[in-house]
């Protein structure tokens, strides 16, 4: 009994790692570009389908496929920001919300047209099912553990990128005050685009893990977006390490909810989110 609960909580914590991966990209766009990209989840799903094609059609191993998709995703994020989102940024947030919303619908239906409505998954091989026994009936999956550790490493790297590199300082400068950045000669549009390229990299990596660990279909994007959004808000808007905490809270809530039934899995996550949000709207780790 105890072992079962410990297993569920552990599973939830590790699931939180995947959610943190979804969330860290969204957190960057919220913190730096000051908007919520409604197509964020759809972009993750689109990258997953791209991985599906690379692995099943071309027979590439998943790891290699992700390595190939990373630069594509960086370029895609860069161009998306430069050619589309940048034109919708301004005093009002209405245009950018509506543009990303329209993009979300286009991606969902584009994927539906290209791949059909079937639920898919990328085959991960033995890696997928391997477990480590921790004794007393407590087991831990190698894949979920890898995902969790990767998420921690990614947050660490993003943190270093922002706080210990020149491009990071530029990104934070633009995030602080874009008007001043423009006035002193920083190319803010390009810096935004690079930040979105970095978001693209997080999307590619999280798509790699998501497509092996969970099922997905063309309509999966919104639920990924909502999960990411909840983790970002729970963690404290704009806080990178907070996304990990938010992801873990959601993961554990869902994992325990799933004990009741499948519908309770998602509902429990939402209810915990709403409760915590009403008590602590600034999130668990608000950025000062």
């Amino acid at each position: 009994m105890l072992a079962a609960i410990v297993n569920q909580i552990l599973q939830g914590v590790l699931l939180g790692g995947l959610y943190a991966m979804f969330a860290m990209g969204l957190s960057l766009s919220v913190g730096i570009l000051r908007f919520v990209n409604i197509a964020h989840g759809d972009l993750i799903v689109a990258a997953s389908f791209l991985l599906l094609t690379l692995t099943s059609q071309l027979g590439l191993p998943p790891f290699l496929a992700v390595l190939l998709v990373i630069p594509v995703a960086f370029g895609g994020g860069y161009l998306l920001q430069r050619l589309l989102f940048q034109r919708a940024l301004g005093k009002s947030v209405l245009p950018i919300i509506l543009v990303t919303f329209g993009l979300s619908i286009i991606i969902q239906n584009g994927l539906l047209g290209a791949y059909g409505a079937d639920t898919r998954k990328v085959a991960g091989g033995a890696f997928e099912t391997a477990t480590l026994a921790l004794g007393d009936g407590v087991n831990i999956g190698v894949l979920p553990l890898t995902i969790f550790l990767t998420a921690v490493a990614m947050i660490g790297l993003l943190d270093r990128l922002l706080y210990a590199t020149r491009i990071g300082a530029r990104i934070r400068a633009v995030s602080d005050d874009v008007a001043t950045a423009d006035l002193v000669g920083l190319p803010s549009a390009r810096i935004y685009a690079i930040a979105m390229g970095v978001v693209g990299v997080t999307i590619a990596i999280s798509a790699g893990f998501m497509s092996i660990w969970t099922n997905f279909d063309p309509a999966s994007g919104p639920s990924r977006l909502i999960t990411a959004f909840e983790a970002v808000v729970l963690g404290g808007l704009g806080s990178l390490w907070g996304t990990l905490a938010g992801g873990i809270v959601l993961g554990v809530a869902q994992s325990l909810g799933a004990q009741v039934d499948a519908a309770w899995q998602v509902l429990a996550g939402h209810l915990v989110f709403l409760t915590v949000f009403l008590i602590r709207p600034q999130g668990l780790f608000p950025r000062s």
């Binding site: 300082a169 934070r172 995030s175 602080d176 005050d177 001043t180 950045a181 002193v184």
Partner: peptide, 8 residues
């Protein structure tokens, strides 16, 4: 008005 980047 100086316009520094306050968090840097």
């Amino acid at each position: 008005g100086r316009r520094l980047f306050p968090s840097l």
